[in-house]
């Protein structure tokens, strides 16, 4: 089992500095020359679940209630629950943990279907303007919150973590197959802001 390696769809052309094997995934904890931010972090290996039911209030994944309002996100420790619409929510893990997906039919493991990236640090929101019409900079957003729409030209779910200048960050999830082009697009857009690939530790530091 241990010899089988699972692959993230995201590949950064950067020198790995610290690497960890975890459940078959090869996780880069740190890259060389990550710079001072903003950072682009691959979170594709972390669990993500889809939850669909007519009555979402009946579910409390890992003890966290589903937000009532569409577009609302709720973070509990390293678990994030995002209300997508009347009958659907997504649950994202932002750190490795032992949570097993609930054995209820309403849940579907979507980690394999999706790629997940975080953009963290100063300049993140300015970068987002270059690849999306979603207005992450709107000070009226209560963070965290979920926005859905094109980002880097592909359909995405974007969770805005913070948008205050200097303490900015967001995570976005999209169809796995687009990962290569999305990474290229975001890195190209982020050149002027100093965006660099960064290891998973940057996410832990941020949260």
């Amino acid at each position: 089992m241990n010899s089988i390696q699972r692959r993230s769809p995201v590949v950064f052309n950067a020198l790995e500095k610290e690497v960890q094997d975890r459940d078959g995934w090869r996780i880069v904890k740190k890259y060389a020359g990550e710079g001072a931010g903003p950072y682009l972090v691959d979170l594709s290996h972390l669990p993500r679940w889809d939850l669909q039911d007519r009555d979402l209030s009946a579910y409390r994944p890992a003890g966290v209630p589903i937000p009532e309002s569409i577009g609302e996100s709720r973070i509990h420790e390293t678990l994030m629950v995002n209300r997508m619409n009347r009958t659907q929510a997504t649950i994202w893990h932002m750190a490795p943990n032992s949570d097993v997906m609930p054995d209820e039919k309403a849940f579907t493991d979507i980690r394999e279907n999706t790629a997940c990236l975080a953009v963290l640090g100063s300049g993140s929101i300015a970068l987002s303007e270059k690849v999306s019409r979603l207005d992450l900079a709107d000070p009226a957003h209560r963070t965290p919150s979920l926005l859905q729409g094109p980002f880097a030209r592909v359909p995405c779910q974007v969770v805005l973590l913070r948008n205050q200048t200097g303490r900015e960050g967001f995570i976005f999830m999209f169809s796995r197959g687009y990962a290569g082009d999305v990474v290229d697009t975001v890195l190209f857009a982020g050149r002027e802001h100093g965006l660099r690939p960064a290891g998973e530790d940057r996410m832990f530091d941020f949260i």
Partner: peptide
């Protein structure tokens, strides 16, 4: 009708 759809294309 009460049913739900999940697109698993990219994950499969």
């Amino acid at each position: 009708w009460d049913f739900h759809l999940v697109n698993l294309t990219d994950g499969t």
